[in-house]
Each structure stands twice: as structure tokens, then as C-alpha cells.
């Protein structure tokens, strides 16, 4: 499902002394099946932006079209829209409330008015997607570990089978292993279900590894939009926004500055490793060649 945002403006607490222009002149086209990373400093408007995409916030002006629904239209069916656009909030485990994991995941599908069989199927499917084994089904969500709770919450959104999945900092506050797991699962989910995924993060590493396109938000508007290689080649601008490039890109830039002939569009650890190993092998070969002469 494609998303079209044009001239979006949002004023927070309009008409009060705390009024703030949270978003201005946002224009974006998100195509079907893209995996997009949204990055930005705290207060850059990224969370505000994603809440517009399933109608939780209403734009002060501008239009948003999702699929063929114009959500700024007063008659738009918000409930139907929210099933198509699944939104996973930051720290989603804070929204768990049911007695069992099963019931909590079933909350969304139940609100959709599905049959018991359908609900059952979807709950099992969603648990499978996030890697929760069925033995957790009848446990209370409150006695699980932090990472498991988060997976239950994400499963709760997945069980609605959204066509667009939006995640706000899905890995925040997890340990490195939990982080890795969640990111891998999201990536796998994207490949398997062919969903459009929008993924908000402030970790350059996470975004660099997963996203095919990056949107950089700054001061309430879109500052950059492009492929990771394009975005990370503008390190100076990113730094001015209080952001940075992935650490590995910094290392590569440093090497280039010292005269090492190396590709400048490397932003993942895997590629950097491969490239550097190749360079080192080449050099060793050369040295060996020199020695035998």
C-alpha cells in the first residue's frame, strides 16, 4: 500500500501558550514494499509523523493518502485504516493488559470482529513470526522478560495482519542480543510478508543494516531522503543535526583520508569486513611478491 503525504503541517496544542509547530511542509511518497528507516534527533518530529499515518493525529493542514483512503477526509473509516497500518509504539510492552499472552495478542483481531477460528490462527501465526513458542500462550505477559514482553506486544499488532508496519524504536532498551533478535525478525518478516515497513530509530547502525531507504527528520521536516549510501556520504550535515554516520563509515572515511583506496559507500560491518580483508590480502600478496624477487 503506497502512502502519499503532501504539505503536512501539525501544530501541537494549538491555541494554548504551549503551542508548537511540530511538523511543517512534510512531503513524502512511500512506495509499496519499501523498508524505510526514519532517523532524527529527539524532538525532530519522527514520532509525530508516524502517528499521522494511522490517523491517531490529525494534520493541522495538508493531506495524507494511504492506499486509496484519504485519511484527512472526515468520512474516512479510521478503524479499517488502523487494521491496514499497524503501529508499534515505543516500549510497546507498556500496553499489555490481559491475563494471558494469548488473550493479549487476540485483542486486536477481536476488535476487528473476526471469528474465533480466525483469531486463533492469527495469534499462532503472529507468535510464530516473533519467535515466541506456544508454551507461552497461557502465561501472564507480566511474568515474562523485557524482550519477551516486547515480542508479545509486537505480535499483538502483527495479528491484525497490517499491510504497512510502523515501528517506533523497536529495539530501545533491549540488551544487544535482544536488539539483534528483534531486528532480524523484523527483517525476516519484511521479506516473508512483503509488507511496507517504516522503522524509527536513532541508531545509525540499526538503520544502516536494515533499511533500503532512509528519511532524516530535522526540526519538524524532512531534511534528507535517499539510499543509505547517499545519506551517509553527507556526514557533515548529519553531524550538524546532532546525528552521525555509523561508526564503521567513520572508520572507512578516516582510512580514505589517510590515502587508502577504498569504496566510500560502505556502511555495514559485513561489507567493511569483506572489503578490508580483501585489501589486506592484496597487500600481503604484493609484499610476498616483493620479497621473492
Amino acid at each position: 500500500m503506497a502512502i502519499q503525504i503532501s504539505d503536512l503541517n501539525y501544530i501541537y496544542m494549538a491555541g494554548s501558550p504551549f503551542e508548537k509547530l511540530a511538523l511543517h511542509d512534510v512531503n513524502l511518497t512511500i512506495n509499496d514494499g519499501e523498508f524505510i528507516g526514519i532517523i532524527g534527533h529527539t524532538g525532530s518530529g519522527k514520532s509525530t509523523l508516524i502517528q499521522h499515518l494511522n490517523g491517531l493525529l490529525k494534520p493541522s493542514s495538508g493531506t495524507i493518502t494511504i492506499g486509496d483512503t484519504v485519511i484527512t477526509d472526515k468520512k474516512a473509516d479510521m478503524k479499517a485504516l488502523r487494521q491496514k497500518v499497524g503501529l508499534v509504539f515505543q516500549y510497546p510492552e507498556h500496553q499489555l493488559f490481559e491475563e494471558t499472552v494469548y488473550k493479549d495478542i487476540a485483542y486486536g483481531p477481536k476488535n476487528m470482529g473476526l471469528s474465533q477460528d480466525e483469531i486463533d490462527e492469527r495469534v499462532r501465526e503472529a507468535m510464530n513470526y516473533v519467535g515466541l513458542s506456544e508454551k507461552y500462550m497461557n502465561r501472564s505477559p507480566f511474568e515474562l522478560s523485557g524482550g519477551q514482553k516486547r515480542r508479545v506486544a509486537i505480535a499483538g499488532v502483527l495479528a491484525m495482519r497490517p499491510e504497512v508496519l510502523i515501528l517506533d524504536e523497536p529495539a530501545a532498551g533491549l540488551d544487544p542480543a535482544g536488539r539483534e533478535e528483534i531486528l532480524t525478525q523484523i527483517r525476516a518478516l519484511y521479506l516473508e510478508r512483503k509488507m511496507t515497513v517504516l522503522f524509527v530509530s536513532h541508531s545509525m547502525e540499526d538503520v544502516a543494516r536494515t533499511a533500503g531507504r532512509i528519511i532524516v527528520m530535522n526540526k519538524g521536516t524532512v531534511a534528507m531522503d535517499g539510499k543509505p549510501s547517499e545519506i551517509f556520504s553527507r556526514a557533515k550535515e548529519l553531524r550538524e543535526m546532532g546525528l552521525d554516520v555509523p561508526q564503521i563509515t567513520r572508520l572507512i572515511d578516516e582510512l580514505r583520508a589517510r590515502g587508502v583506496a577504498i569504496d566510500n559507500s560502505i556502511y555495514t560491518l559485513e561489507r567493511a569486513k569483506a572489503t578490508l580483508q580483501m585489501l589486506i590480502a592484496k597487500k600481503e600478496k604484493k609484499e610476498q611478491g616483493d620479497a621473492t624477487c
Binding site: Q51, F89, P92, Y107, N111
Partner: peptide
């Protein structure tokens, strides 16, 4: 407000 929104995103009415 945050929780309300999160549950609304899951179809709460």
C-alpha cells in the same frame, strides 16, 4: 494518552 493511542492502534473503541 500514550496507552490510549496504542490501544486505538489495535482497534480499541
Amino acid at each position: 494518552e500514550k496507552i490510549t493511542k496504542a490501544q486505538q492502534a489495535r482497534g480499541a473503541d
